[in-house]
Design a protein around this nucleic acid. Structure first.
Lengths: 185, 185
DNA sequence: GTCTATATGTTGATAGAC
DNA sequence: GTCTATCAACATATAGAC
């Protein structure tokens, strides 16, 4: 009865990584059990279904993204906040070019299933979109939602291209372009 | 021995649709057999493996895309060609918002597997990128490759957002934005 | 709470009659 | 060329001993 068992956390951590690297559908619970060092049968003590575990993964990503945005907003300067976000994407460009964007990947894949999971994944992207729009609004720009849409579209597309051609450089290029674009608004 | 059997074609057609709607990994050969009206065991007469069938699907998409680009180039006016391509994307925005971009989806999913299929899928996106760059070059613009990259990134990202939020409008908005951007170059 | 053993269904793929 | 029957592997999920 160790209340301090970290098995649940290890399972979520392993699932976060494996869903990113291999995708949700191509990752089996056996894979996750093995990687986290938890016996397969024990997984079901923590998560009734695979969808349940996926839900925990998405929740983890939502929280992590919230932290990221909070960090970017430290100076309370909306333009600097957006720049910071773009810099973080560039920092992750190696990972993204290898495994794709973890958020875009989840959205793309889960939108093909028709579980309740779909809507949870949409929250992830929705959160990013809302945060970006908030920054543009703080900059007192018109059509903040559209501007956020354009920035997010560009960087998610850049992630797809970088992943497809295995060129992290594409993310760097588009981040530079986005910064110039933001400055010009 | 009916040389005129259309079973092979029906199989590819069904696979093209199902891979788009449900994804490669989530589509079983039984699904494809059923939708095309070919008995499951007979599928293997035409395609030795599932990967083999996927290869045929990608080949079909490559040819279809070639036709699309040829159609867009009719007037031999590079700017009009790019506009035409964007218009076609807008025409497809309903389908894309429902099922995602068929090309982006394949690239995203197949880049997670490590079969030879990955490279085939990359050809699809590479073909589009090269064609776009060719148009920008014809317009005598510098950094045509980068411009093509930006346009493709933006529209692929727009497709992801449109799919995620089920809003075809996002594709329309970004197409309009891209046209204005091209004009301004 | 933990783990082994296993049920149950589906998958890609094969064998072989016609 | 066509189709039925089926295999072997792997999936999610459960039962029940400890």
């Amino acid at each position: 009865m160790p209340r301090t068992s970290d098995k649940r956390e290890r399972l979520v951590d392993a699932a976060v990584t494996l869903f990113h690297h291999r995708g949700y559908g191509q990752t089996s619970l056996a894979d996750i059990a093995e990687q986290s060092g938890v016996p397969l049968g024990n997984v079901y003590y923590y998560f009734k279904t695979k969808d349940d575990l996926a839900n925990a993964v998405i929740a983890e990503r939502i929280h992590h993204q919230q932290d990221t945005f909070a960090e970017c907003e430290q100076d309370n300067d909306p333009q600097a906040s957006l720049y910071c976000f773009l810099d973080i994407l560039v920092d992750m460009s190696g990972d993204i070019s290898r495994y794709g964007c973890p958020i875009g990947g989840l959205c793309q894949e889960l939108n093909k299933e028709d579980t309740a999971l779909t809507d949870r994944a949409d929250e992830l992207l929705g959160q990013a979109l809302k945060w970006s729009a908030k920054q543009f609004r703080k900059m007192e720009l018109k059509d903040a939602t559209q501007l956020a849409q354009h920035m997010m579209a560009t960087m998610h597309g850049a992630s797809l291209l970088a992943n497809t051609f295995n060129k992290p450089r594409i993310i760097k290029d588009e981040a530079v372009r986005m910064k110039a674009w933001i400055k010009s608004l």
